[in-house]
Write a protein that binds this DNA or RNA. Structure first.
Lengths: 341, 341
DNA sequence: TTTGTTTACTTAACCGATTTACTGTCAAAA
DNA sequence: TTTTGACAGTAAATCGGTTAAGTAAACAAA
């Protein structure tokens, strides 16, 4: 219908060069000493006809796309979805758009996605990195692109990241279970070499060790197909009847665990006490409510975007690394509190 | 570090014109009768140096951005998050990237976002539209841009949409409650004039009427702040002690309802039977498990993206409207089954 | 009167691709 | 011998902006 207006159309209509229009629209009128009368005339006309500069052309010339690439593990996981939501809000407020994708923790998929993001000239990267993409991340950094990692980091890549104190979180949760009198405490998690997961395992392990208790760690291979998670989990619980408490390493596996317990008619905390990493509605609403290690989602999102925006705005200080470790909160609910107490 | 290669660099390196390179890379070698020997030489070199055409430049010239704009109500809502995830997968497989945003059902925010998407030259639009954006959607369609609506539609805008049979879904759920012997059934939902919501109310209303029962509808104003949802909900339940069943209009309000019931120590189904629209982990895992109207999330996503891709591929048949109404499944669980039965 | 400075713009190059319209060569047909 | 057509490519315009470099006019200083 109404053919899109270009800067040339505006220039012709007003009998002014397109350079002048460009300067005015980019707020460089004063600097370029464009007469105030003309500035007003141009602004008025632009407003009137609703002209919007073509952002592709702009990006091509300036090299800035005003886009942030967001790579999460899985956007349908409530933890990532809520962080994505918060990041989205702050990004839009600052004039940035988000392109996102789910990595599924798949290294080669992630590599492809990074290539795609580069290709799209995203200005900054927010990544929850899977293992094995050190080279790609380093290459981004070497090329001067702002990168912020979150939820986990790559130990041998020197970049900014936002994380929580995983080690202390599971340590603390385990201690809590021990204090409640549970002894045969298992840690059930996804098999992973990611930093946050290693810390979670270690925190649990150290707490058990410090109390002279035997650690019992079950690692389950992640799979998109939920049945393939449920099955080994079911086996584990069935074949370990002496377990009196389980600490789950993520919300996803925690949820699966609850499903299995329901299926096997195991009640928390009488049959098996339960704590899960990450907090969300499922845990708060469960009967009994499930004790959870709540991550400070808002703070994580805030920090991630703040650090990234700072990098985007003054590329100068990219040498000063800004990594943040946030604290979790152990939300103690009935599922982990000994009946008698 | 390694300066990005451009097509000119490739052309110079091989002593060939950039036109030729472009033809070859776009698979038009045969059509443009480029010698096979040269084609091979170029392909090999391109592969070797890892040249990737600048997609911004490409988009600027061709007018195609290979991007789909996805507008959901709230990406942190599990229903939308899982649809977004499925759409993302299919889109990436077809060479499209997703830019997304949450509308919060806010009309003016949505208008801004549509402007932004246009500005970004997204190739196609997937929108769960709030009320009051008929004009903007029509304008997209008039400009020949592919638009698919989902979850709801705009009755007076003639475009494709994917929806479920809301009317029958709540009718059927209400009938189920009546069959179970509940009589004082309330419908609690968010105040909204969106088609899916109107249908949900009507389905409930008609079912009650057909059985000669009195409808009791509570509409709650949506708010980002959950407390402002909980408060009127709490009041409603407290001041309506005769209610023996509640049908919740969305997963969000259903979840809030469960929280209130927990707080007030009301058990389902003995104190109040419960059914909620949308199904997710919270409902399946709740004790007792909550009967839910499950939307066919995969099918919705599949249909949405199929229709959109078809439109993107052959702009020809844009006159033939492809609207799909999918069926829901009433997952009957304990929360709505009379104790005695 | 000449030179210099400021003001208020404009011209033209550029970003990196695609695409239209050519060019030059050689063999077959008229 | 000239024309035609297939072949194998190329030059230049274009998409819609930004930006470095330049210019004309007015005024001030030397």
């Amino acid at each position: 219908m109404n053919k899109k207006l270009s800067i040339v159309d505006i220039a012709n209509a007003l009998n002014v060069s397109k350079t002048t229009i460009s300067f005015i629209l980019n707020g460089r009128a004063q600097e370029k000493r464009i007469g105030t009368e003309l500035v007003e005339r141009v602004m008025k006309y632009v407003e009137e006809v609703g002209y919007k500069p073509n952002s592709l052309a702009k990006s091509l010339r300036t090299g800035k796309s005003n886009t942030i690439g967001l790579m999460v593990e899985d956007i349908s996981n409530p933890f990532f979805a809520s962080i994505a939501r918060l990041i989205e809000d702050r990004a839009y407020k600052n004039g940035y758009k988000i392109i996102y994708c789910s990595t599924d923790n798949d290294t080669s998929k992630t590599k492809d996605l990074i290539t795609m993001f580069r290709d799209r000239h995203v200005d900054g990267y927010i990544i929850a990195p899977p293992e094995g993409i050190e080279k790609e991340i380093e290459s981004l950094i070497n090329d001067g692109l702002p990168v912020v990692l979150f939820d986990r980091h790559l130990p041998y890549v020197n970049t900014d990241f936002i994380e929580i104190n995983n080690l202390f979180s599971t340590y603390n949760a385990t201690k809590h279970l021990i204090e409640q009198g549970f002894k045969n405490i298992a840690f059930v998690t996804f098999a992973s070499q990611q930093t946050q997961m290693l810390d979670r395992v270690k925190g649990y392990h150290d707490a058990m060790k410090s109390e002279g208790l035997k650690a019992n760690i079950k690692e389950i291979v992640f799979n998109q197909n939920e049945d393939l998670i449920m099955k080994p989990l079911r086996e584990f619980i069935k074949t370990n009847p002496t377990i009196d408490a389980i600490l789950f390493g993520t919300n996803h596996i925690g949820t699966c665990g609850l499903k299995i317990m329901q299926e096997l008619d195991k009640k928390a905390p009488t049959d098996i006490a339960v704590i899960s990493f990450d907090d969300y509605d499922v845990f708060a609403l469960h009967s009994p409510p499930v004790t959870a290690i709540a991550q400070p989602v808002e703070e994580i999102a805030d920090n991630v975007i703040s650090v990234l925006l700072e990098k985007l705005n003054n590329k100068l200080s990219f040498n000063k690394s800004q990594s943040v470790i946030l604290k979790t909160e152990l939300k103690i609910r009935k599922s982990s509190v000994r009946a008698g107490k």
